[in-house]
Design a protein around this nucleic acid. Structure first.
Length: 815
RNA sequence: GCCGAGAUGGCGGAACUGGGAGACGCGGCGGACUCAAAAUCCGCAGUGCUGAAAGGCGCGUGGGGGUUCAACUCCCCCUCUCGGCACCA
C-alpha cells in the first residue's frame, strides 16, 4: 500500500484554495500577524529558502487551529541589481526576468503547501507598490528627513553606483557577485536622516523584550553612541578654530599634537603658501587614492603642517599633522593626540618622536612615560593636570567639560557611528526618486497626485556608466515643472531597494488600496507584527534598523499609533550543504520542484523541520530525507491498516493494558503543543515519532489505540498538512484539519501512574523503587535500607545525610 | 581587539528550574520474512575493564579548577569553531 504523494498533495491544495482557508478576514478578533521576511526573486526557490517558509507555515497553521485570525502573507522584494545584471548578460528586460522568477517561485511555494493569503501578495517593482515607496520618500522629504548633499560616499566600481554604509563590508561591496573594493567619491546624493532617530532607535530596543540579545546588541553597536565633549582649539597665527570630539576630556593635559583628516576643509588654509604645502598636498593626494581597507592596514602616518594649535585649557602649543587615520566623517574630522592614553596616538607619537605626557595614573600605581610600551586607556586618577590633578578620571571629565562650557570653548556632545542612509542609486531597476529640477524653482518634489513616477520601459541599454541609465532616456528625464510649468528635468537616480522593504509589512494589510499606502483603520487592527520570522542575522544592521526607522517616522507623522513594528523576532539559521550556505551560485542548491516530484512536499517539510532546531544552521543531508520518507509511509500504513478502530471519540473508560498508552497519548499532545509554541519543531516531530513507535508496539487494538492514531493525525497537520488531511478523510473526517480546533489533552492522564524513584548512594545510581502514588521520605528510606541491591554499598558505612526530591530521587550520603 | 552564539556517541541532535546523560532519527550490527535481494517488521548498541552469562566496576557532555548530596546545566580560567563590529577619538 503505497502513498501517491503527488495525487494527495494536489487534491488538498485544491481544496484549501477552493475553500479559501488561508484568505484572511479583514475584521480580526483574535488577530495574529505572522510575518515571514519576503524574498528576492532570483530564479526558482531551492530547499535553502524553504526553511523560512516551512517554519512560518507550521506556526501559522497551528495558530489557525488555535482559533487565531492569522495574517500570513508573502511578497517579493523585486527591485535590485541582479535583475539588471541579468538584463545586460542575457538581453532580457529586468521586469520580464523578475516577473518570470516570481511566477516560478510562487508555483513552487504553492507546491509546498504554504498557507499564504495569496490575494495579498505584493511585488515591489510594480507601479501600484512603488507609487507608495515614492510617497514615503516625499513624506520624508516634507519632514526634512530626506535631503541631498555633496559628500564623500561609497562608490562601487563594480556596480557603478553608490552604496549605503550598511552595504560595505570590510571595504568591499556587499553583493556576493561583485565584491569590488569600494572607493570614496565626492558626489551629490540623497540621504535619509536616520541619525536624527539614533537615540530613539537605541531606546526602543529596551522595549523589545522578545528580540534576541544578539540582534539588539548588533544594533546598539552599529548605532554606536558615544557620549563625550567638544573642545575648540585655536590655531596660532591663523583665524581657524579646530573643534575636536573626545570621550576623554580628562586627558586634555596630555595633548601633545593634533591630527586632522586629509579630507578636512581646513587643510587648505593651514598650508597655503607655506613651505609645508607641497609635502602635505602629496600626502593628501596619496591618502585619497587609498581605499578604506588600505588605510586601516597601513601604519599610522601623517605629515606636519607647520602650524600649531593652542590647548584651550593650559595654553600649550602643539603641532598639527594631517593623518589619514583620522576619519573625516566621524566627529569633526580632527582629533587631539594624547599618546599616553590612546593606542593610535601612541603609535603615531612613536613614529614622529612626539612627547608622551602621562596625565592619568592607574589606581594605586604610577606610570612613567619613558618606559611605557602601550597607552594606558583605562580610567584612573588625574595627574599633572593643573587644578584637576587628583580627581578620578570620570568626575574629572565632567569638571573639564564644565569649565570648557563656561569659557565658551566646548561642551558636552554626543556622537554616533551610525551615518545618514544614502539612498540614491545610479541604476535602472529601482523606484525613481520623485524629484524634479527646475531652472526657476529649483528642486521640486513631484506632487503626490502625480505619483507614481513610472519607470520607462523602452530602454535597452542597462550597462552602467557611472550615471543612471535613466539619464539617457529623454522621454523620462524631460518633464515640466509642477510649480511654474516650464521645462524641467527629473532626478535620474532610483532608490536603494532597502527603501522598498522598509515599509512592505504595512502594504500587506491593505494591498489593493489606491488612495493610501494602508488605511489607518487596518494598520490599527493588524499591527504590530506579532511574530517576525527572519532569515538570519545578516539583516540585523540593515533592514531591521530601517524598518524600525520607517515605523517611527510614520508614527511621528501621525500615520501609525505604534512606533516599533515587531513584537517578536525569530532569527532562523541558514541551510548549508557541504558546509556552505546553500545557493544557486555555489552550485549546491537542491531545487524544490525536483525534490517534491520525487519525494513530495510533506517529506520536504519534515526533512527540514526534523534536521535541526529552527534557529540553528542546518546541514542538508540526504539521510534526513530517508527518515522523513519512512515516517510518512509508516504513518500512512498505520492508518490504512486500522481505519476501523478510529472514531475520534476520546475514550472514557480507561483501564487495563492500554492505560499507559493513553497516558503517552496525552503527554504527546502536551509536548507537541508546547513545542509548537516555542518553535521547537524538531523535538515535536521526535515526540510524534515516539508515539508512532508506541502505537506500532501496541497489541490490544482497542479504542485507546484508535484514539492514539486519531490524535497523531491531528498533530501531524501543521507539519505534514497534506498527509494529515488525507488521513483525516480516510478516518471519516470532514474537510481539512485546518478547519478543526487544536486538540486538548486529558489532564487526568498527563502523568504516569507508576513512578520510579532513583536511589543513589553518594550521588551514584544504585537502585530504583517503583511506586504508584506518592511516598514520604521516611517510607522511601525504609524501603532503601531494606533493598538487597544497596546492601553492599551500605554495609559498614554510616549514613550521614539523606536528600529526597519527592517521588523522584533519594540520595544516601554515607561514609 | 570588542560583542554575541556554540562545542554532547560514527553522524544530525535530546535533556524541565541543578536530579537516571545520549530521547528521536540516520548510519551500523543481529534476527524474522524471502529462492535471493530490496522494502518491511522485531531486537542490540557511549566507552574501557571484568564475567560463560545475567551482571559487576570504572570512565565519559572541548580542556583545567571550583561550588554541591548531586553539574551537559551554576562560578572562575583556558582552547577551538561560527557570526557580527572594528583606526569611532
Amino acid at each position: 500500500m503505497q502513498l501517491d504523494h503527488s495525487k494527495i498533495e494536489r487534491k488538498w491544495q485544491e481544496y484549501w484554495k477552493e475553500k479559501g482557508l488561508f484568505r484572511t478576514a479583514d475584521k480580526p478578533k483574535r488577530k495574529f500577524y505572522n510575518l515571514v521576511m519576503f524574498a528576492y526573486p532570483s530564479g526558482d526557490i531551492h530547499m535553502g529558502h524553504c526553511k523560512n517558509y516551512v517554519i512560518g507555515d507550521v506556526y501559522a497553521r497551528y495558530l489557525m487551529r488555535k482559533g487565531y485570525n492569522v495574517l500570513h502573507p508573502f511578497g517579493w522584494d523585486a527591485f535590485g541589481l541582479p535583475a539588471e545584471n541579468q538584463a545586460i548578460k542575457m538581453g532580457v528586460h529586468p521586469e520580464t526576468w523578475t516577473l518570470d522568477n516570481i511566477r516560478t517561485s510562487d508555483e513552487s511555494l504553492k507546491l509546498l503547501g504554504i498557507s499564504y493569503d495569496w490575494d495579498r501578495e505584493i511585488i515591489t517593482c510594480l507601479p501600484d507598490y512603488y507609487k507608495w515607496t515614492q510617497w514615503m520618500f516625499l513624506l520624508l522629504y516634507e519632514r526634512r528627513l530626506a535631503y541631498k548633499k555633496e559628500a564623500y560616499v561609497n562608490w562601487c566600481p563594480g556596480c557603478q553606483t553608490v552604496l549605503a554604509n550598511e552595504q560595505v563590508i570590510d571595504g568591499i561591496c556587499y553583493r556576493s557577485n561583485c565584491r569590488a573594493f569600494i572607493e570614496k567619491r565626492k558626489l551629490n546624493q540623497w540621504f535619509f536622516r536616520i541619525t536624527e532617530y539614533a537615540d530613539r532607535l537605541i531606546e526602543g530596543l529596551d522595549r523589545l523584550d522578545h528580540w534576541s540579545e544578539n540582534v539588539k546588541t548588533m544594533q546598539r553597536n552599529w548605532i554606536g553612541k558615544s557620549v563625550g565633549c567638544n573642545i575648540v582649539f585655536t590655531v596660532l597665527d591663523h583665524d581657524i578654530r579646530l573643534e575636536v570630539f573626545t570621550t576623554r576630556p580628562d586627558t586634555i593635559y596630555g595633548v601633545t599634537f593634533m591630527s586632522i583628516a586629509p579630507e578636512h576643509p581646513a587643510v587648505d588654509a593651514l598650508i597655503k603658501g607655506t613651505s609645508f604645502e607641497p609635502a602635505v598636498r602629496r600626502y593628501v593626494k596619496d591618502a585619497m587614492k587609498r581605499t578604506e581597507r588600505e588605510r586601516v592596514e597601513k601604519t599610522k602616518d601623517g605629515v606636519d603642517t607647520g602650524c600649531y594649535a593652542v590647548n584651550p585649557i593650559n595654553g600649550d602649543k602643539v603641532p598639527i599633522f594631517v593623518a589619514d587615520y583620522v576619519l573625516p566623517e566621524y566627529g569633526s574630522g580632527v582629533v587631539m593626540g594624547v599618546p599616553a592614553h590612546d593606542g593610535r596616538d601612541f603609535q603615531f607619537a612613536g613614529q614622529y618622536g612626539l612627547p608622551i605626557r602621562v596625565v592619568i595614573n592607574p589606581p594605586g600605581a604610577q606610570l612613567d612615560a619613558g618606559s611605557m610600551n602601550e597607552a594606558y586607556e583605562e580610567p584612573g586618577v588625574m595627574v599633572d593636570s593643573g587644578q584637576f590633578s587628583g580627581l578620578d578620571s570620570v568626575s574629572g571629565a565632567e569638571a573639564v567639560t564644565r569649565q570648557l562650557a563656561e569659557r565658551g570653548l566646548g561642551g558636552p556632545s554626543v556622537n554616533y557611528r551610525l551615518k545618514d542612509w544614502l539612498i540614491s542609486r545610479q541604476r535602472y531597476w529601482g523606484a525613481p526618486i520623485p524629484i524634479i529640477y527646475c531652472e526657476n524653482c529649483g528642486m521640486v518634489p513631484v506632487p503626490a497626485a502625480d505619483l507614481p513616477v513610472l519607470l520607462p520601459e523602452n530602454i535597452t541599454d542597462f550597462v552602467p556608466k557611472g550615471r543612471s541609465p535613466l539619464a539617457a532616456v529623454d522621454s523620462f528625464i524631460n518633464t515640466v515643472c509642477p510649480n511654474c510649468g516650464e521645462k524641467a528635468k527629473r532626478d535620474p537616480d532610483t532608490m536603494d531597494t532597502f527603501v522598498c522593504s522598509s515599509w512592505y509589512f504595512m502594504r500587506y494589510l491593505d494591498p489593493h488600496n489606491d488612495r493610501e499606502f494602508c488605511a489607518r483603520e487596518k494598520a490599527d487592527q493588524w499591527l504590530p507584527i506579532d511574530q517576525y520570522i527572519g532569515g538570519g542575522s545578516e539583516h540585523a544592521t540593515g533592514h531591521l534598523i530601517y524598518f524600525r526607522f520607517f515605523t517611527k517616522v510614520l508614527h511621528d507623522a501621525g500615520y501609525l499609533s505604534l512606533d516599533e513594528p515587531a513584537v517578536d523576532l525569530f532569527n532562523l539559521g541558514m541551510v548549508l550543504k557541504n558546509g556552505e550556505v546553500m545557493s544557486k551560485s555555489k552550485g549546491n542548491a537542491v531545487p524544490v520542484r525536483n525534490f517534491i516530484d520525487k519525494h513530495g512536499a510533506d517529506v520536504a517539510r519534515l526533512t527540514i523541520l526534523f534536521a535541526a532546531p529552527p534557529e540553528r544552521e542546518m546541514e542538508w543531508s540526504d539521510e534526513g530525507v530517508t527518515g522523513a520518507e519512512r515516517f510518512v509511509q509508516r504513518m500512512y500504513r498505520l492508518v490504512s491498516e486500522n481505519q476501523c478502530v478510529i472514531n475520534g471519540e476520546r475514550p472514557d473508560q480507561i483501564s487495563g493494558e492500554n492505560e499507559d498508552l493513553y497516558i503517552k497519548i496525552n503527554q504527546t499532545i502536551a509536548k507537541v503543543t508546547g513545542d509548537l509554541e516555542s518553535f521547537k519543531y524538531n523535538t515535536a516531530i521526535a515526540a510524534l515519532w515516539e508515539l508512532m513507535n508506541a502505537l506500532y508496539g501496541t497489541r490490544e487494538r482497542d479504542s485507546v489505540f484508535g484514539y492514539g492514531i486519531y490524535t497523531m493525525i491531528h498533530m501531524l497537520s501543521p507539519f505534514a498538512p497534506h498527509l494529515a488531511d488525507e488521513l483525516w478523510s480516510m478516518v471519516g473526517g470532514k474537510g481539512s484539519l485546518v478547519e478543526q480546533p487544536w486538540l486538548e489533552y486529558d489532564k487526568r492522564y498527563a502523568e504516569s501512574k507508576i513512578k520510579t524513584i532513583v536511589v543513589q548512594v553518594n550521588g551514584r545510581v544504585r537502585s530504583h523503587i517503583e511506586i504508584s502514588g506518592s511516598l514520604a521520605e521516611e517510607e522511601v528510606k525504609k524501603l532503601a535500607l531494606e533493598d538487597e541491591r544497596l546492601r553492599r554499598y551500605l554495609e559498614g558505612k554510616v549514613v550521614r545525610k539523606t536528600v529526597y526530591v519527592r517521588d523522584k530521587i533519594f540520595n544516601l550520603v554515607v561514609e
